[in-house]
């Protein structure tokens, strides 16, 4: 594999690795954030937040 990429294989693989790490990190951050917000909203709704005259317990 490294031989097929020629004398600059390290630079090619480093470029691909950088892209994979940055874009995977971005996707993970966005998806984890969305899951956290969904859970926070579900917890608030379960407590009756936003309902007029809802229970406090």
């Amino acid at each position: 594999m490294m031989d097929a990429l020629g004398p600059h294989a390290g630079f090619i693989l480093a470029a691909y690795l950088a892209a994979v790490v940055i874009l995977s990190g971005l996707a993970a951050a966005i998806l984890l954030d969305r899951r956290a917000q969904r859970r926070a909203l579900a917890a608030l709704e379960e407590r009756g937040a936003g309902r007029r005259g809802g229970s406090t317990s």
Binding site: I30, D33, Q37, R38, G50
Partner: peptide
Amino acid sequence: AAAMQAEILRRRVRTLTIFE
């Protein structure tokens, strides 16, 4: 689109937290 969904949910959470 996923990041916008997360942001819309965050704003709902903020509003409901203030109401509560």
